[in-house]
Design a protein around this nucleic acid. Sequence first.
DNA 1: CGGAACATTGATTGTGGTCAACTGCTGTGG
DNA 2: CCACAGCAGTTGACCACAATCAATGTTCCG
Lengths: 235, 235
Amino acid sequence: MNDHQPFDANVDIPDETLQAWSRLPAESWAALDAIIVASDAERGHHPAGETFLIVSGIHGIMREMADGRQSVCALAFPGDYLDMRRVEHEQEGSLVTLAPGRLLEIDAERLDALIVQDSDIADLLLTLTREAFARSQDHCADLATKTPLELLASALLELRRQHIEREQDQFTLAIRRGDLAQYLGIKPETVSRGFRQLRTEGFLDAGGNGQISILNMPGLRMLASGGRPRRSTRS
Amino acid sequence: MNDHQPFDANVDIPDETLQAWSRLPAESWAALDAIIVASDAERGHHPAGETFLIVSGIHGIMREMADGRQSVCALAFPGDYLDMRRVEHEQEGSLVTLAPGRLLEIDAERLDALIVQDSDIADLLLTLTREAFARSQDHCADLATKTPLELLASALLELRRQHIEREQDQFTLAIRRGDLAQYLGIKPETVSRGFRQLRTEGFLDAGGNGQISILNMPGLRMLASGGRPRRSTRS
DNA sequence: CGGAACATTGATTGTGGTCAACTGCTGTGG
DNA sequence: CCACAGCAGTTGACCACAATCAATGTTCCG
């Protein structure tokens, strides 16, 4: 079932990335429309297919090691374009839905043909992929240098961005603690302790149901960008 | 000074990525040639410009935090295409040369124009960027889950690939221990201890001048893909 | 209500960071 | 030629901190 309005006009655009899509000419949309299948995904769903366009929800790219350890190596937000195909496919990543949402599956082969024909689409996909690559680099840098508390602060700021009411400091954290831990390379217990610490130090307040109220945004930003390095308590 | 043979025929092609470039039509090469400037970079060099094509050497994308912690969040190998521009440029990454080599700087704006005109180039750049994104995801997964010893084994296998005599198990590790540490999110001391352990356990032999001889390749591969997880010594 | 999955909290341990000292190498200059 | 400084790398001792293990709380289902 094709969806003629993949980005419904009555849904507020939550991200600059979506705006990039809205700049696409109508004829490009028509061509895309013919090779798109929309679907709603619940948590834990592994969508079939290779090429996707995220409409809503939180989705992650998951990798698993031989001994079972697994990690969410990237998050995908509304507006993101994902092509899971690899030239050298040693490690396969799989798309997993972390918070329910809608995604569009694109016919990969026909998209390839479209890329060659339509330079607007090619240009857009290149820009989106480059942005996703840059965000992945950010995440690498975070994982390599930040402490768990700093990681949590960064993740909160990153997840806050996908909400419509982004100017407000209140939002619901739609992702589970365990998934967050796998994304940040720490254990769920550490995530829990981190939230506790953020609460007791007055950075935020957490209501039930994943409600988050950020009380000290500048402080949280400072924390996320390196406010609490690791060092010994040598007085 | 333009270089009419960016990939010199008498240099063995060390990577599948370079082969991707060689499939580009001659007229596309001619168009690229006009907007390319070649240069040789020594270690520590921060090339000017925004868009690059790597010919040889090892280069890294480096990020720095406010308090000075820095990390090499991605490695760039021969054949890689890098566009450092970002739509939302909160964190700027900079290209750094880790092992001396040659790179081609491409005029970013004129490349943009070329991408719209030449679908072969657009297609190639999209594929290359997607591959780089996928490798970045691999690295994220590594950083999130692997122990230092596993990280070292992975890095050795990754660095080995960029050498011509790849079938052999001997190569020179052209990257410094400190840079390797920044890439893997560990400390130089830990890198040193890791090498020591790999030596004493018979995985490899390290001569002077960064010469590495891998003695037990299957074992190293197994180690890299999760052979030594973290767990308690509860017998 | 029961049961399972998720989340939190506590106690303990292993491990990689930290600091410091030392080695080996290279280039410089007297 | 040696003395010296400077830097990358190594080794050792110590300890802070996140992982681990275990138990309890909480939420969300049927």
